[in-house]
Nucleic acid binder design. Sequence first.
DNA 1: TTACTTTATAGATAATCATCTATGAACGTT
DNA 2: AACGTTCATAGATGATTATCTATAAAGTAA
Lengths: 322, 322
Amino acid sequence: MNVRHLSFRLLQVYVEVVRLGSVSRAAARLHLTQPTVSQQLKRLAEAVGTDILEGRAGGVRPTRAGEELFRAARDVLNRFSDFGDFVDQVRAGSRGRFSIGVVTTAKYILPRLLVPFYRDYPNVEITINIGNRGHVLERYRQDADDLYFFSHPPVGEKTLAGRFLANPLVLIAPQEHWAAARRQVPVSELAGERFLSREPGSATRLVFESWLRDNDIRLANTMQIESNEVIRLSVGEGLGLAVLSEHTISAGAENLAVVDAEGFPLSSYWYLVCHGDRPLPPPARRFVRHLDGHLEECVAPRYIHNELGPILDFISASDRES
Amino acid sequence: MNVRHLSFRLLQVYVEVVRLGSVSRAAARLHLTQPTVSQQLKRLAEAVGTDILEGRAGGVRPTRAGEELFRAARDVLNRFSDFGDFVDQVRAGSRGRFSIGVVTTAKYILPRLLVPFYRDYPNVEITINIGNRGHVLERYRQDADDLYFFSHPPVGEKTLAGRFLANPLVLIAPQEHWAAARRQVPVSELAGERFLSREPGSATRLVFESWLRDNDIRLANTMQIESNEVIRLSVGEGLGLAVLSEHTISAGAENLAVVDAEGFPLSSYWYLVCHGDRPLPPPARRFVRHLDGHLEECVAPRYIHNELGPILDFISASDRES
DNA sequence: TTACTTTATAGATAATCATCTATGAACGTT
DNA sequence: AACGTTCATAGATGATTATCTATAAAGTAA
């Protein structure tokens, strides 16, 4: 048996012939002439090395080896039909893999964005890489992930970024702090407090510092802590005040108060970011589209600021390409 | 995915490339040039409709879809390798089917001939068609079976027959019959007895009648019974005497005596018969060869009269043909 | 940078394939 | 015997395939 000259087409034809028990009828069904089919059968028999069909009243019937060939052919065609389905899914993006780089702060909203997608596309595997802003920026530069969540998107010729979620920054204090009971506290009055903040480069810190500069306020006493959790707990313990994403604090409520300070909450956003010079893998495209269509299922309406347009356009362009 | 342009050769090449992780090395192993393999991969990707390989340090690596294609290809090639083995077995005759037509008398020796063959070739299925001589002759004329056992082979231009087994016909009587105690009884003395015999046309009867004619003996009283078993039992019960194959009576010994009569046992043989104008199916060839080589395992040496030569020659000729 | 990989592309050619029309051979049914 | 099936064979043709050599492009290691 020389498998080398075996083609799937021959098997398809053969299967049809055996199913219908007739060369002519198979030819008709396959939109071929009868001699064509006869000849293909001949070539198949040659490749197999044995007679596979024998004449029968008004048609043909497989020989012993032919029966077995029929089974093998059926199995093989089915196997590849399965594979075809798989490829279709891969192409449609409903199956496959992609990765997201996210800054630590985003981990509070990430699950809410991911769960509905997982529900609709159980065969997509998402790899999530979490790090601080510096870390994720580095990954972005190396093109290590397909999509990124940034609070301050990196700038760059080919960077595509789309705002899609409000990320209000609130001022938090221990519940027993004097400012917790006031309304519209001028922040200048808080300048003497100790402030706990993330490392330099953190988006939250960038926004806060920029705001301080704009309002000509200089803080007297700051403390750097590289974890939102620890900051939150420390504020609860009375170690100081802090500016944190509202999403972060809604997660736990241990003895914290949101101070109603002038100018607060500070306005800030989450951006979906990707490289504009390389097509996204299909599952990532699926994800962006899904995100675009299902934001209201993920978060409260007041957070939604859907400006994903440019990224969606980019994706549509990629679709047309391939 | 267009299965139509998929060939097994492409899959073989692809599998080799993925296994070795390198186009060049696969090319070397397949005795092809590297561009050839590259081009085949391109066609394969085209047929599949997706990229299946991506560059990697010093070689290539399958994409997501490529991995799945690799699995499918491996499965499919294995499936056909199994089928190839099957075909080889069919061609060698160690797998398949054939049929034998036998006259009822032969059923006593048939199992002994078949069992050793079954032991050596468990994948060969034998269909046995048993009937009286007329019935089997009719099947022979219609070419309904591949091999036949006859005691008197049919004559015909294209009939191949080979004697291989003695089938002595003995005269049996009830144990208490007067002839049972005598030696060299002249059959003329038995002419007055009632004889039980098979239907006209039966080989046993033909031989006996021919012998009677040769010895100018005419029986007074006969009774026709179409079953060797019933004849045997009837003789045991004292209904009369009978001439039966020695093989037949060794099967049961109910109150029977073999009469030591003059001229007995009558000489007769089993013939293996087939049509000489059509090649035997490979399993039937295997069977004949096996029979030729294992007669002494099947029956006592005194029965063996192996004259299968012409049939074996015919078989060898068929082998060379295909 | 240079040298040595690696894979990809281009161009050429002989083989093969897919497909048709026309025709023949075998078989069963009027 | 004549007819209508069924499958097989022959001959023709354009498309595709298998395969090569030569060369380019891209990446890796010195």
